[in-house]
Structures are given as structure tokens and as C-alpha cells.
Design a protein around this nucleic acid. Structure first.
Length: 562
RNA sequence: GACCAGUUAGCUCAGUUGGCAGAGCAUCUCCCUUUUAAGGAGAGGGUCCUGGGUUCGAGCCCCAGACUGGUCACCA
């Protein structure tokens, strides 16, 4: 591995520290008793503090210096005065260890007392400091002045691949993840207060059910069977309702082997909750209360900004049926229309349709194309066509519809809920219908029948309402991020390219030259068999590695091994 | 998968008709005891994403590829 100049310098400092008897990576605990935030909030002149963190700025002014120390809660200024640190004759701890051997990014521990500088900055007067961990690689630290940031570490590729560096230097990035955890905690608290029970269900499943998506497959060696990473946990949570729990919920890491883009990562987090003896009307009330609570817990207000939109999560939310929505935005009433009539209408709206699309799918296309994008404020869309909701109970008034709602925010779905289908015979028929759709070429239809799930339903599942919430999408809305990668610590990336030592070009020239030690440049060039550019790069590369030297004489140019 | 943009020093970025590779910060040396993007003087640091082509000569032009971002397609 090739090290940069700055990395080499830091490795040298490591050796110098050890030569002075200082362990750059000590094992013993450091007795921290304050954070940067506590120092500022409970400031008291002359108070003794012990703090630790990362050096983020150093400003040496001769016999006294200033520095910024960053801990988990922010930054605090340090004042290093030579005679405060080195009270005796020996000034080497200040002159050598502090001034020459510490670098930006190093973790140090500080014992000191508090004071305020002439310009009014709350500061720790360092009495003693200890190296806690040396940073061998320079951090990309931005600079601030007058609220403007200079040299910000902004390249998305590097930020995602090196999230540790991103978090260390970009406080606003850390804030997003703090809010993410606040959201999970708030939601968990809301459910627990309502008396519902957090559970865990299998991630490795023999049949990937509960959604239509391509799964990741793996293999269990002892059982010698294929297993699938879950695409949803719905069917397992319903089994628990069959088992007698009143309300169960799970934060579920799901995996879908599909495309990646701004709003899709191969693994993502859904929250699913199932509550017995309820229906989807109750769930709408519950959902709007939940989201208002969560928005307040995360941002201190029910209002949120997302791009150019201001959204308000304060309950209640508008409710509209899919039929009315389509009627409103297209003037077309899907009620009592045949599949062909709807297909013709869709064509008239310039929507791409084909013969494999059933009635439900056609309606969904119309809604997606013409209606969905209009819902900026949280809105419940209700009563979806039966065909596209195989796990949802038939509507109590219209057998072509289901008791389903989706919550739309800024034109995107963030929640999906049903009065759950608990009729085992109806459920089997729906699965079989899906199978037919799949065979017809609908790649969204489910192609597995989970017999064990049907057996569970046959034992009897109470009337139940269930809801799923896309947690990544929700936190995107609450933190105003347009990309899912900004709300996942480690979004999936393509593997980085490996670095090579000697390039092929360099090797070819080196091999040709090895026997002769010294050759005419043009003869060597033809012997190496390289293209002009390959030759040029190769020879320059060898020179850079210090392996060859080019010599100019009256007889021409010669290359020799060094 | 398609199209567009990008890839140059540790970071953020310039780079002229194709003619020795540039700046600020960071790094190194020196001065400086309440500064705050501290300041002053000096120095070092490069696989210009990779490979091929055109050319006397390519960071720059052409072709192919890699990676990233964006838009679209796909996606319960």
C-alpha cells in the first residue's frame, strides 16, 4: 500500500512517541467526568474537569496554543500554555509532545480548569493531557467562518464508503442518525404505552411471503434446503395473532433483490404492527395519532420541511377512496366498469398498458400515474381493488374492493394497512389467483403458497388490522433528506477497486531490461512490445518507483537499472 | 437497463489553441503566551479513475471500461 506524505509523517511520530515512553494506544481507562456540552451548560470559572475527545483544530502561537476538542456532544476550546503544562524546567511535554507529535484527529484526554478568554470563549485551561489514540490518516476536516463552511467533506461516494469519517467531521450527518433513533424510540414507546408487544420473527424463511419482491436466496447446509432472506414479516406476525397475542409489532429489516436508487436499498427497515379486534378505520385513527406523536418527538413539532414542501403530521388526515381520487383527477369513474372498459380508459389517458394487466393492476397504474403525486399533505387513500391486495379482507360493502389504506406524503407511500383477511378459504383462493397471475406474466404476483400460514388461519385468527410503515422513508421526510443513503449508516455500495503494485506495463519493461541492465531506449521500447502510451506510462512508473533511470548521451537515450 | 454529469495533492476545487501540473486549507521547518478560517517567513507533496488510439507531444481530442451522482425505466 502506498502511503501519502502525511501518513508517513504520522507513522514517524508514532515511533517518536514510543521512544519517549508514551504509548500511543494505551489500554487503561481514562476517567472522563464531563462532556463538552456539560462544560458549557454548567460553566463555572475555575472548575476542574476531565474530558476526552478528538482534536479537531490546533492553533499554535508559540508558548501558548488553542485547540478544539470534539466529543460525542460537540466541541470545546482548549488552551495549552507551556508553563501550565510544564511546571518545572523540562518543557518537552509542550514543545515536543504537544507541538510536534499531536495531530488533528488524535484522541486525547485532558485534565484542566475552566476559564473564559478575552474574546468570551468558554475554554479549558489544560493542566495535563494524555495521548489516548493516534490517528494515522488525516481527517477531511472542514473549516468554518461566519457560518460559512470551507472545504466541506461533501463527495457522496466517499461520505458513504467512509461513514466513520463523514460522522466525525460533519455534525449535521450525525444529527440525522440521532433523529432516526429518536423516531424508533418514540414509536416503540407509543406502541408499548398502548399495550402492544414487541416481537422478533425469522429473517431466514423457507418461503418468502407477505409481499411481492425478488428475494435473496441462501442455503442451509445441515438441512440441505434453500432459505430466503425475508422480504416481509407479515405472515409470521399474523401467526402470533392466531397464537393469542392482542397486539404485536416488529421493526423488521427486510431484504429485496431489486434495483437500487435514491429511494431503494437492498436492505431496509419496515415496522409492522397487528392488532386484534380492530379494523382499518381504527388503524387510520391510530396511524395519525402515531405519526403526530413521532414527528413531535423527533423534531419538537408536527411540521416538517421536505424539499420545497411544508408538511404537517398533525392529526387528523384527509381520507379519500381510490375511486373518488381517480374520479377527481381524471374524471373517470371506475365503479362497475369491466376490465376492458378500464383498459380503454387508461389508454385514453396515455398510460402504457398491456394484456397481462388485470383490473386491479390497471386501476393501480391509473392511480399511480394521475393521482398519487398530488397528495403532499398526509392523506389516506382507501379501498383498493381486490386483485392487488391478496392478504386483505374484502370490503364490507363492495366485494370488488378491499379494506385497505395507504398513507401518502409528498406523493410517496409511507404506510400500508388492512383489515386483515382471516377467512382461510378466501385466503387460499387469493393465493391461487396470484399463482395464475404470476403464470400469466405478472412479475408482481406471489408465486408461493404458504401452506403453514393457511393452516394457522384454519385454526382461526380474530378480526385484526395490520399496518406497515417504511421507516427509512419516514425518517427521510422528518429530516428533509431526498436520498435513502443519507438515512442509512452504511448504504450498499459497489465494492471498491483494488490497487495494484507494479502495473503490467511496468513489468513488461522491467523484464525486457533485466538481462541487459542498460539498453538503448528505442530498442527497449520495441522489445517491450508496448503501445506508445503503455510504454510512456510504464517507463515513467518505473522511474517513479526508483527502479530505472534514463540517461541522455551523444549516442542517444539509454535506460539502465538502478 | 437508458440518458446526462463527474472523477486532478489529505480535503475543496482551478487548469488557457494539445506544449514542464496549479490555488486555498492541511502537512513539514522557523517566529509568535488569550487566539478562533489567528498571523508572518520558507519548503515538500500528484497512478490527472483505468486501458487503448490520434499526435513530435495528451489532464485536455477519439474509443472502450470502472466507479459515483442525477433523471427516467423498474420496484406493494
Amino acid at each position: 500500500m502506498q502511503l501519502s506524505e502525511q501518513e508517513l509523517v504520522r507513522r514517524e511520530k508514532l515511533g517518536k512517541l514510543r521512544a519517549l515512553g508514551i504509548n500511543p494506544y494505551p489500554a487503561d481507562l481514562f476517567p472522563v467526568d464531563h462532556t463538552s456540552k456539560q462544560i458549557k451548560s454548567d460553566f463555572e470559572d475555575g472548575k476542574q474537569v476531565i474530558i476526552a475527545g478528538r482534536l479537531m483544530a490546533i492553533n499554535i502561537q508559540g508558548k501558548a496554543s488553542f485547540a478544539q476538542l470534539q466529543d460525542s456532544e460537540g466541541r470545546i476550546q482548549l488552551y495549552f500554555n507551556r508553563d501550565e503544562i510544564c511546571t518545572g524546567e523540562d518543557k518537552s511535554k509542550y514543545n515536543d509532545v504537544f507541538k510536534k507529535l499531536l495531530d488533528l484527529g488524535d484522541f486525547i484526554g485532558i485534565e484542566g480548569t475552566l476559564f473564559t478568554t478575552q474574546v468570551g470563549e468558554k475554554t479549558v485551561m489544560v493542566k495535563n493531557f494524555k495521548m489516548l489514540s493516534k490517528a494515522l490518516k488525516p481527517l477531511p476536516i472542514p473549516k468554518q467562518k461566519d457560518g460559512k463552511t470551507y472545504d466541506a467533506f461533501t463527495d457522496p461516494e466517499q461520505r458513504y464508503r467512509q461513514r466513520y469519517a463523514d460522522l466525525a467531521v460533519n455534525p449535521h450527518v450525525k444529527e440525522v442518525f440521532v433523529k432516526r433513533t429518536k423516531l424508533f424510540n418514540a414509536m416503540r414507546q407509543f406502541f408499548n404505552d398502548a399495550g402492544y408487544f414487541e416481537v422478533e420473527t425469522p429473517i431466514l424463511q423457507p418461503i418468502p411471503g407477505g409481499a411481492a419482491a425478488r428475494p435473496f436466496t441462501t442455503h442451509h447446509n445441515s438441512l440441505d434446503i434453500p432459505l430466503y432472506m425475508r422480504i416481509a414479516n407479515e405472515l409470521y406476525l399474523k401467526r402470533l395473532i392466531v397464537g393469542g397475542f392482542d397486539g404485536v409489532y416488529e421493526f423488521s429489516k427486510n431484504f429485496r433483490n431489486e434495483g437500487m436508487d435514491r429511494t431503494h436499498n437492498p436492505e431496509f427497515t419496515a415496522m409492522e404492527i397487528y392488532v386484534s379486534y380492530k379494523d382499518y378505520n381504527w388503524m387510520m385513527d391510530f396511524c395519525e395519532q402515531l405519526l403526530e406523536h413521532c414527528a413531535n418527538a423527533v423534531n419538537g413539532t408536527s411540521e416538517a420541511t421536505f424539499g420545497e414542501h411544508k408538511i404537517n403530521f398533525k392529526a387528523p388526515y384527509k381520507r379519500i377512496t381510490m375511486r373518488d381520487s381517480i374520479l377527481e383527477f381524471t374524471g373517470f369513474d371506475i365503479y362497475n366498469k369491466s376490465e376492458d372498459e378500464i383498459r380503454t380508459a387508461a389508454k385514453g389517458m396515455h398510460i402504457e398498458v398491456d394484456e397481462t394487466m388485470g383490473k386491479g393492476k390497471l386501476i393501480d397504474e391509473i392511480f399511480g400515474e394521475k393521482c398519487e403525486g398530488n397528495y403532499i399533505q398526509p392523506t389516506f387513500i382507501t379501498d383498493y381493488p381486490k386483485e392487488m391486495s391478496p392478504l386483505c379482507k374484502e370490503h364490507r360493502e363492495n366485494p370488488e374492493l378491499t379494506e385497505r389504506f395507504e398513507l401518502m406524503v409528498c406523493g410517496k407511500e409511507i404506510a400500508n394497512a388492512y383489515s386483515e383477511l382471516n377467512d382461510p378459504i378466501d385466503q387460499r383462493e387469493r393465493f391461487e389467483h396470484q399463482l395464475k397471475l404470476a403464470k400469466k406474466g405478472d412479475d408482481e404476483a406471489t408465486e408461493f403458497i404458504d401452506e403453514d400460514f393457511l393452516r394457522a388461519l384454519e385454526y382461526g385468527m380474530p378480526p385484526t388490522s395490520g399496518m406497515g410503515i417504511g421507516m427509512d422513508r419516514l425518517i427521510m421526510f422528518l429530516t428533509n433528506n431526498q436520498s435513502i443513503q443519507e438515512v442509512l449508516f452504511f448504504p450498499q455500495m459497489r465494492p471498491e477497486r483494488k490497487q495494484v503494485d507494479l502495473s503490467d506495463n511496468e513489468k513488461a519493461i522491467f523484464e525486457a531490461l533485466k538481462a541487459e541492465k542498460r539498453m538503448d531506449l528505442n530498442i527497449l521500447k520495441s522489445k517491450s512490445g508496448l503501445s506508445n502510451k503503455g510504454w510512456d506510462k510504464g517507463l515513467k512508473g518505473l522511474g517513479k518507483h526508483g527502479l530505472t533511470k534514463v540517461e541522455k548521451t551523444d549516442d542517444g537515450l539509454f535506460v539502465e537499472l538502478v
